[in-house]
Design a binder for these strands. Structure first.
Length: 583
RNA sequence: CGGGAUGUAGCGCAGUUUGGCAGCGCGCUUCGUUCGGGACGAAGAGGCCGGAGGUUCAAAUCCUCUCAUCCCGACCA
């Protein structure tokens, strides 16, 4: 491959585009890789297209290597497939919907579980056919409420999704592990910095699930990890370690007058000042009322959640814990319907009598004592002991996770970071197989319900994440396998530099390298250097002022090293540099 | 959906307060010079000032409505 910049469809920008904030967006636009068409929708210019294809190629190679087979489904899908699994309604506004000329409903696929399941059902019917894993690399469409950060989070994006079909749970585990291994290879080859974290499978159903997160400050997922034992989980999947139960004696419950103390802060100050209690917010138990609706049901359950007063509720964690139920905040008119619940002064002592389910933070173990509401306006109770004065119906992960919280595995303080999801693997189970009645006929003549795994890689997102992780103040710095070329040959000067540069570029191309050649006659050296740095091809060879002394300059865009080398050796030195890295 | 900001040439922006010829930089075209850090000179091309309505002798500028985009939040494989 030899790309000549004299004719390449490329225009770099000297200034940052006004609508770009994050580095990947800024640089991909400035370097002429992508252009915005509409919010969250981008076009890929020639160099960007090459990078995108390189990522897709790496993904494809590793998927093929693990034995998955590639198919391609349409992006435009009829409603009926999504009707069967209930997702036509469940997906809500995020689904791009459209009608054909006959007014029939269609959608642009946000993901393709239904199609994969249906395809397998149509072709395979014997247990002898299984297991099988299929994948596709397809453009997906999601009408996100707020697309942002350029390519990082668009409404149209390229994703690899694969699905494994197994006869039993052991088979599913094997398929899952194979994907895990393949993903490690993929993200390593992509030159990414990433972490594998425990995740919730959420509303999709299923059990084991892990996310591949690329830590970046612009990330939108919060995750915790432990430097000592390697435990890592996203915030939704973090499991709070419970302290040991307390079995000693506790003082008797005591009701306190606490006028005008609807918040934890006012309560703590008041009881310390007026009742001589030296407590902190962590000694209080705050009780949050939510109503939980289950999809397909009209009635909402009233649920109370008790968490230590020094912590906020993390709504994402709460939702994940209640999925597929959907929590909503208790409003004033909800309180009006429950006269037993005194807003701001709710305590768990009476909940069993009211018949309201009560779930607590895992830190609220038997024998712990709390300052909490006394279920009367202006009154709280102290020495309220779990297991004695109230008995929770269970625990729930609803409290925020904080840096320094103990690791659930080894107890060391946890670190909190932000990351972007670049891959997700999970054991789906039988949700979609059930919906499609996907069975294999077993050796005993009885049907076996298939169990599935679902695995995704954000291909276009990966391009942005690499840009996010690999750039400097001058521009992009692509890993070699992803870069639009192996080497950027730059000819500067008014003598015959460009001719010589062209000759060397052709020689390198003949040797099998992918070459970008700056043979523009009008651009000044400064422009060519700036463009070279912006574009971020890992190896740069400059044929310029040194030509008269028979010298060229070899630059390493990654490490920044520069070296004058004899022109005669230029091609072989470039080859050596490229091969050293590929090895 | 809530909060904030912005819409003026391909890109980045000034001009709006206080109404009076549509501007600057980059890019683009032509000629000449220059050629290792986004060169210089000269001459050019390029605009429905987001849209609609209103006020006024006169509107990019003031008023009303509207559309769009970006950022933060909510939401999100």
């Amino acid at each position: 491959m030899l790309l000549r910049m004299s004719t390449l469809f490329l225009r770099t920008l000297r200034e940052d585009p006004a609508d770009a904030e994050v580095p990947s967006h800024r640089l991909l636009v400035r370097a002429g890789y992508v252009r915005r068409v509409a919010p969250g929708i981008y076009s890929w210019l020639p160099l960007g297209k090459i990078v995108l294809e390189n990522v897709a190629r790496i993904v494809r190679e590793e998927m093929d290597r693990m034995g998955a087979q590639e198919v391609l489904f349409p992006a435009l899908l009829p409603r009926e497939y999504y009707e069967k699994t209930g997702r036509w309604t469940e997906y809500g506004d995020t689904l791009f919907r459209l009608k054909d000329r006959k007014k029939a409903d269609y959608l642009l696929g946000p993901t393709h579980e239904e199609l994969f399941t249906d395809m397998v059902k149509g072709e395979y019917s014997s247990y002898k056919d299984y297991p099988v894993t299929l994948y596709q690399i397809q453009t997906k469409y999601r009408d996100e409420a707020r697309p942002r950060a350029g390519i990082l989070r668009g409404r149209e994006f390229v994703m690899k999704d694969s699905y494994s079909f197994d006869l039993d749970d052991d088979g599913l585990k094997r398929s899952y592990e194979q994907h895990r291994d393949a993903y490690i290879k993929i993200f390593d080859r992509l030159g990414m910095n990433y972490k594998i974290v425990f995740a919730m499978s959420g509303a999709m159903g299923g059990s084991a699930s892990e996310e591949f997160l690329a830590p970046t400050p612009t990330g939108e997922d919060t995750f915790v990890h432990c430097r000592d034992c390697g435990y890592a989980a996203n915030a939704e999947a973090f499991v709070t370690p419970a302290p040991p139960a307390y079995t000693g004696e506790r003082a008797a419950q005591q009701v306190l007058d606490t006028p005008d103390t609807p918040t934890i802060e006012t309560l703590v100050d008041f009881v310390n000042a007026n009742h001589g209690l030296g407590i902190t917010a962590a000694d209080t138990l705050k009780n949050l009322v939510v109503k939980v609706t289950t999809p397909g049901s009209d009635t909402a359950e009233t649920l109370i959640i008790g968490i230590p007063g020094d912590r906020e509720v993390d709504f994402k964690r709460l939702e994940a814990a209640l999925a597929p139920g959907e929590p909503a905040i208790f409003e004033a008119d909800d309180f009006a319907r429950h006269p037993g619940l005194v807003r701001g002064y709710i305590g768990p002592q009476i909940l069993a009598d009211l018949g309201i389910r009560y779930l607590v933070d895992p830190r609220v173990v038997s024998g712990t004592e709390w300052v909490t509401g006394a279920n009367e306006p202006g009154k709280h109770a102290a020495h309220v002991v779990a297991g004695r004065d109230f008995t929770p119906d269970g625990t729930i992960e609803a409290a925020e996770v904080r840096a320094g919280d103990p690791c659930p595995v080894c107890g060391q303080p946890l670190i909190i970071d932000r990351g972007i999801e670049i891959g997700h693997i999970f054991q789906l189970g039988r949700k979609y197989a059930d919906a499609a009645e996907l069975d294999a006929l077993g050796p005993d003549g009885k049907p076996i319900r298939i169990t599935m795994g679902s695995y995704g890689v954000g291909v276009s997102r990966a391009v942005a994440v690499i840009a996010e992780q690999r750039h400097d103040e001058l521009g992009l710095v692509w890993p070699r396998e992803v870069a639009p070329a192996d080497v950027h040959v730059v000819g500067t000067g008014k003598e015959n530099q460009i001719e010589v540069a062209t000759r060397i570029a052709e020689e390198l191309e003949a040797a099998g390298l992918r070459v970008l050649l700056d043979d523009r006659s009008s651009a000044s050296p400064g422009v060519k250097f700036k463009d070279s740095e912006l574009l971020g091809i890992p190896t740069v060879l400059i044929v310029g002022r040194g030509l008269s002394q028979g010298l060229a300059e070899l630059r390493d865009r990654v490490g920044g090293a520069r070296e004058e080398i004899p022109l005669a050796e230029a091609a072989s030195r470039v080859l050596a540099a490229v091969q050293a890295e590929s090895a």
